[in-house]
Design a binder for these strands. Structure first.
Length: 725
DNA sequence: GAGCACTGC
């Protein structure tokens, strides 16, 4: 993160008035400032992309859609928006939007660019991500997450404030990127076709209602855009898709043979080594390779890609055992690990340089492929596997399985050795195996539950989901399954139209549709206050954190919160306890101090503070959403019956009954499942339950469970259970 | 009596 050390300069530049008298200190700062500006200017000029500025601007002028293929280190993400701004693309007050798949990228790049422009972050250059908006009316270069731009499209279907939209890292093929590209294709087409009286301002937002109610009349989706907005004038929209080289062809074809230009990267050469034969045990092979590098190669840190926490922990033990057998002079090898579930303080350890004379070996999951860049890597060890989530629409079940990487993933991994100098990558499989790998990882949209995507598209006026121009179409079965689910939830009518008001309200909420529905029902059951907490807590990673060595302590801590009714009320107890703690402690305390105290409280209670913080943010956001919708926010107080009935009414699709052996039968799918041992109901095993999650690992486990009365199901979801029985 | 890659609104 290059801009961290320069935080002070931003404030200074922001408050500096030309012509004001400067103190000596300020004059010094001014000198520093100029020196820094000079340095930034030189850095910008030395980027490979700087030499093609004119050509790029010309290509954007000539083509409405441009694919830019840029390798790592080309500077495309930071420079191209500045080129376009300087070339006058924002002259009429329009904005250049750049989307990123990850929040952290949107923030760090925006910071860097605002520094390069010598402006305060949030003025000309800004970013917008969920829970954090650093933009203003003067923002012209706006970095954001792709999911956020999709949300913006719900409020402004023409994305009228943008003159250019750049979709960065398109090759990652996240669900959001894929949906966004389909949508942008429609928006661009519609904007280039509209002729109008020009009476209304371009920046004026279309209101939610009109955006939501675009309906099929006789034409396709593009037709409905036109009809609803035919009295407005929009300037044409320029689209730029930025991608890694292997995948550029796909995008070019998708956009009707769009022009693709290549931008040189600045990557050092990486020598690739393969094994002669397939290895039987890749963990063992990794271990041997690590020591071969350590004992036989020059200085430089080693990055090893593993599939999960368990592998990382076991290989770490093995390395340290084997080190002890080596002569003392060869023992200077330090292991550090990084994976998403690791608390942030521990994650930071991978960035610290190894002590003098030591070599660092970083054991990482694929978090180190794209999400974090670790300096000092010269060697990469790649066993060629990754843990991937798959989704089976017919069973409504997800599972996590270890699968071979794709070719582009292998390239991405080896590239991590060539950031600062020439490097080496050791692939622990034969070259013939590499040739057999898939070119790219299967796009996420083909392996996830589509309910949310479909609800969003419906809200954007796309009626014919099966006919939507996806870059790669999900299976017909997956689409139908999700349509059915949305009809069962009441979001869509039997004709597949967005229902009013339920479907419209559900589409506004940034939640899994089943949770959005639970909120709407809760306002009728007079327990919305409780349900807001519930869905916020269910929307984050696991709240309880139990380190292996303190399992008993963690269990005791969890008991203080647990409710005999189940996990949902247990989660509410945790949330309310954190509220009470904050209210008591933060009397007269600042916000930052309150957060610090809360982190300590979490640690004492074996709660993952990152998850709780996230849940509190979501709670705040959805509370705002339901207030805006005018839903009745009431609490059921000490009487938990209406709340539990509301859970049954909301999650009836996930009801299960106990079988004689103590396993459960899920009523909707007929699958035999087991209660996950982390549930507070693991030992009690009530007769009838609802659950929120079904995951296949060693067994089919259900998680987040509450006891219900079977009769509630036929009473509260008769449309579903009457036919079943 | 289990054990969970990574994102995002």
């Amino acid at each position: 993160m290059p801009s961290m050390a320069q935080g002070g300069f931003r404030n200074f530049t922001g408050s500096q008035k030309p012509g004001s008298k400067l103190s000596n200190e300020n004059q010094n700062r001014q000198t520093d400032f100029s020196a820094r500006r000079q340095k930034i200017l030189q850095q910008r000029k030395s980027l490979p992309i700087a030499s093609v500025e004119k050509r790029l601007v010309e290509e954007v002028r000539k083509h409405d859609i441009l694919i830019i293929v840029g390798e790592t280190g080309s500077g495309k993400t930071t420079q191209i928006p500045q080129f376009l701004f300087d070339a006058g693309f924002c002259h009429d007050g329009k904005v250049i939007g750049i989307t990123q798949p990850r929040r952290v990228a949107a923030v760090t790049v925006a910071k860097r660019v605002s520094e390069e422009c010598g402006v305060e972050l949030g003025q000309k250059v800004g970013y917008s991500i969920r829970f954090d908006d650093a933009t203003s009316s003067s923002t012209r270069i706006k970095y954001m997450t792709d999911g956020l731009l999709l949300r913006e499209a719900l409020l402004d279907p023409f994305l009228s404030k943008y003159c250019v939209i750049i979709v960065d890292e398109a090759h990652e093929r996240t669900v959001h990127t894929d949906v966004l590209m389909g949508l942008l294709k429609n928006v661009q087409h519609a904007r280039s076709n509209i002729v109008s009286d020009g009476q209304r301002s371009n920046s004026e937002n279309t209101n939610v209602k009109s955006g939501m109610s675009l309906e099929k009349e006789n034409g396709g989706q593009r037709g409905s855009f036109l009809r609803k907005h035919n009295n407005r004038k929009y300037a044409p929209l320029k689209l730029i898709i930025m991608s890694a080289s292997l995948d550029a062809q796909v995008f070019s074809e998708y956009f009707g043979g769009a022009k693709a230009v290549h931008v040189q990267g600045r990557q050092f050469p990486v020598d690739i080594f393969y094994t002669r034969h397939s290895v039987a045990d890749y963990l063992d092979a990794s271990l041997i390779t690590i020591f071969q590098i350590h004992l036989g190669e020059g200085p430089g840190d080693i990055l090893v890609f593993l599939t999960g926490q368990e592998e990382i922990e076991s290989i770490e033990r093995l390395i340290n055992e084997r080190l002890k057998q080596l002569p003392e002079s060869s023992q200077k090898l330090l292991t550090v690990s990084i994976f998403a579930a690791l608390p942030s303080e521990q994650q930071m350890r991978v960035f610290a340089p190894a002590p003098s004379g030591f070599r660092k070996v970083i054991l990482a999951t694929n978090i180190a492929e794209t999400s974090v860049t670790i300096p000092g890597i010269k060697y990469v060890v790649d066993p060629g596997f990754v843990k991937a989530r798959t989704y089976d629409p017919s069973k409504g079940m997800e599972s996590l399985v270890v699968v071979p990487t794709s070719k582009s993933q292998a390239l991405q991994r080896s590239g991590r050795a060539g950031r600062e100098g020439a490097g080496k990558c050791f692939r622990l499989y034969p070259e013939s195996e590499f040739e057999k790998l898939e070119d790219s990882t299967k796009p996420e949209i083909k392996r996830c539950n589509l309910s949310n995507v479909i609800l969003q598209l419906k809200a954007l006026g796309v009626d014919d989901i099966l006919g939507f121009d996806f870059i790669e179409k999900p299976s017909r079965e997956a689409i139908i399954k999700s349509l059915e689910q949305l009809i069962l939830l009441g979001a869509l009518t039997d004709n597949g139209e967005l229902s009013d008001p339920v479907g419209i309200q559900m589409a506004q909420l940034p939640l899994d549709p089943i949770y959005s529905k639970a909120l709407i029902l809760a306002s009728q059951f007079n327990c919305l206050e409780e349900m807001l907490i519930t869905v916020a807590m269910l929307s984050v990673e696991s709240i309880f954190y139990a380190p292996r060595d303190k399992l008993e302590e963690a269990r005791t801590a969890m008991k203080c919160f647990s409710s005999p009714e189940g996990d949902h009320l247990t989660l509410i107890n945790v949330y309310r306890a954190s509220n009470e703690f904050l209210e008591k402690r933060s009397m007269g305390m600042g916000n930052a101090k309150g957060e610090k105290a809360l982190r300590k409280w979490c640690k004492e209670n074996f709660i993952n503070s990152r998850s709780l913080k996230h849940a509190r943010d979501i709670h705040k956001q959805i509370l705002g959403n339901v207030e805006q919708m005018g839903l009745q926010i009431a609490s059921c107080g000490d009487d938990m019956l209406p709340y539990c009935r509301c859970l049954a009414a909301s999650f009836f699709l996930n009801a299960a009954v106990k079988q004689p052996e103590g396993t459960y039968r899920a009523l909707a799918s007929g699958q035999v499942v087991q209660i996950h041992p982390s549930s507070v109901l693991f030992q009690q095993r009530p007769e009838c339950i609802i659950f929120n999650e079904l995951v296949q690992t060693n067994n089919k486990y259900i998680r987040n469970i509450t006891r219900i009365n079977y009769l509630w199901l036929t009473e509260l979801a008769p449309q579903y259970f009457a036919v079943q029985n």
